[in-house]
Write a protein that binds this DNA or RNA. Structure first.
Lengths: 164, 164
DNA sequence: TCAATACCGTTGCAAGTGCAACGAAGCGGA
DNA sequence: TCCGCTTCGTTGCACTTGCAACGGTATTGA
């Protein structure tokens, strides 16, 4: 493989980036056009739906967003009345963030179509494909896990039921 | 699946985005720290290595970069002496962009480690995994291809040897 | 020939990003 | 108790992005 006949379209990092971006953009039409949410805000809300009252740090560590992004996303969401910020009683440094009633109502509206779109993608794959994909993504992550120069994986992104 | 037990970490678009970004960031250490290239500049140069003298429009259509990004990337690369811009003789609107001697030399230096890193990723996959991945990525792309609300796929990203 | 139209690359601008640095708050050892 | 060290969330800042609009050039059709 010389420099001259290297094909960008065959390069795995590029291929993943292109597909991922294409999917993300399509998906963002659901939560952006419908609810005015950015991807960061979307991730924060979705995370909050499950992990009810958490700190900025927690979201940062779980949703693959850096601290400033979480902080700003939470601020915007608070301004929009979708999220509530409370100081922790036990540790004054901590912030306790949770969905407001309106926030949950909004999520109840936009999460189903997002899940439906994922289902549409998954429907194109056979059960064997889906199983293979899980394994492949995990194997690629492991390469990065073993690479000190790569960014560490978020805690929640590590499958719990898989051998270390 | 209710709103309350939806897990972000299981959501395919999120999973692809996380893995893709992790890989892209790791890879960018190679061309960024080593040569000061952004991802856009990297893609432009790599595309030029194969498609020697092309227009901005061409790169835009092939490397998944919007026109302004290509335009600015090319300008920076030209300033850095890595790329040459010439007006087309037949159509004065067109720009003919090609790697300079220095540009090619730089690419000859940074492409091999990038390819080596891809190889490192691929080495974690069995031949069957790799074949499955090709099929899976293509199937997912097809869903988007059939979706008018999704962004169309770049020409070069469509495999040539696959049935329509 | 000459408008009307389409296309090319660039630029403006508002918004988003990533990184580092900051002040505030807890923690720990002397 | 008090001083250094860590952690929390925020902010500043320089830079990148994405979109739309622009001027310049070709093309089309009457």
């Amino acid at each position: 493989m010389t420099t001259r006949d290297f094909r960008l379209a065959d390069f795995l990092p590029y291929r993943l980036a292109v597909l991922s971006e294409r999917i993300s953009r399509r998906l963002s039409r659901i939560y952006e056009a419908e609810a005015g949410l950015s991807m960061a805000e979307w991730r924060v809300m979705v995370h909050l739906a499950r992990c009810h009252a958490v700190s900025v740090r927690e979201i940062h560590g779980c949703a693959n967003l850096d601290k400033p992004r979480v902080s700003r996303a939470v601020s915007r969401l608070e301004t929009a009345g979708l999220v509530e910020k409370t100081g922790s009683a036990t540790d004054q440094r901590l912030l306790v963030i949770s969905l407001s009633k309106r926030g949950r109502a909004l999520l109840d509206r936009i999460l189903p179509p997002a899940i439906a779109y994922e289902a549409r993608l998954l429907a194109a794959l056979s059960p064997a494909d889906r199983a293979a994909l899980d394994i492949i993504l995990e194997k690629l992550h492991r390469v990065l896990d073993a690479d000190a120069q790569a960014r560490p994986r978020s805690r929640l992104d590590i499958p719990r039921d898989t051998a270390e």
